[in-house]
């Protein structure tokens, strides 16, 4: 059990609701993942644009907490208005704050992010900013009132894992009281395990499960990866060494003789 804002959760995996082959597979994958928090979005109602009743009905059958996002916003103003609409539509003050600064790699705009976070915290939101692993940006977000930070592992949908473990480890060491969640860029359960081993509180992912050949099986695999990583962190890893050290006792080795 762990605490995310005011919510007590069993799972340290947060999961997205997008890109699944069907709403039924989405539902089965979310169940298999064990996740207690699911990200959602809001979009214009357009004919043939997905979403709609099937998706929403499948999601509402699940006993999960929703985390709406501001995906696609390119300015603090857009993100703030989107967050306000999300709060009413989904009945939650939680918001995954995305302000995109570069369309090529969907890199967050740190300036827009800090501006929007400050305003949304003032309006009573629990802000989950999707940010880079830059320590100073993260400190500014904490100054703005964020208690949770979600640095990327790698750009969204790339499946490349933790590109900067040093930066992520530094964040964990420097911000011990902040809830840290690696969001985006994970591809396989070992990536999730690595994030948890570093002491991150949780991971959030979507594409790695939704676009797997068997999303339900992959959801289960990530569930185990997250559990293994957390257990390893709590167990306390041994230090790294430069030189080999035998694990089998040396004393009494047969055929040994003094040179």
């Amino acid at each position: 059990m762990w605490q995310l804002a005011e919510q007590t959760l069993d799972s340290r995996l947060l999961i997205g609701s997008s890109l699944y082959p069907s709403p039924r597979i989405m539902q089965a994958a979310i169940r298999a993942s064990g996740a207690g928090v699911v990200t959602v979005a809001l979009r214009r109602q357009l004919p043939g644009a997905g979403g709609g009743d099937d998706f929403w009905a499948a999601l509402r059958e699940l006993d999960v907490r929703l985390l709406p996002n501001t995906a696609g916003c390119h300015s603090a103003r857009e993100a703030i208005t989107t967050a306000q609409m999300a709060r009413e539509l989904f009945g939650t003050r939680w918001i995954k704050l995305e302000v995109i600064g570069d369309d090529y790699n969907l890199q967050p705009d740190p300036f827009g992010l800090v501006e929007a976070a400050r305003e949304l915290v003032a309006q009573g939101f629990e802000v989950f900013p999707y940010c880079t692993e830059d320590l100073v940006v993260c400190e500014r977000l904490v100054d703005a009132g964020c208690r949770i930070l979600m640095p990327w592992g790698a750009p969204i949908g790339t499946a490349r894992g933790l590109l900067n473990p040093y930066g992520l480890r530094t964040l964990r060491e420097r911000l011990p009281d902040i809830t840290l969640i690696v969001d985006a860029g994970l591809g396989v359960p070992s990536h999730a395990a690595q994030a948890l081993e570093l002491g991150f509180d949780a991971v959030l992912l979507n594409t790695a499960i939704a676009q797997a050949h068997d999303p339900v099986a992959m959801a289960s695999a990530f569930r185990h990866g997250v559990s293994a990583g957390r257990l390893a962190f709590e167990a306390g890893r041994m230090p790294e060494r430069d030189l080999a050290q035998p694990s089998t006792p040396v004393v009494g080795t047969p055929f040994w003789h003094q040179q």
């Binding site: 997008s18 990200t39 959602v40 809001l42 214009r44 998706f55």
Partner: peptide
């Protein structure tokens, strides 16, 4: 929602009407 009944639309308004959608 509480303001729908008192919000009068005028010429040139840009309305965004959004629904729940899949998101990551």
């Amino acid at each position: 929602k509480s303001a729908y009944a008192e919000t009068r639309l005028v010429d040139g308004d840009r309305i965004e009407l959004v629904i729940p959608m899949q998101g990551g």
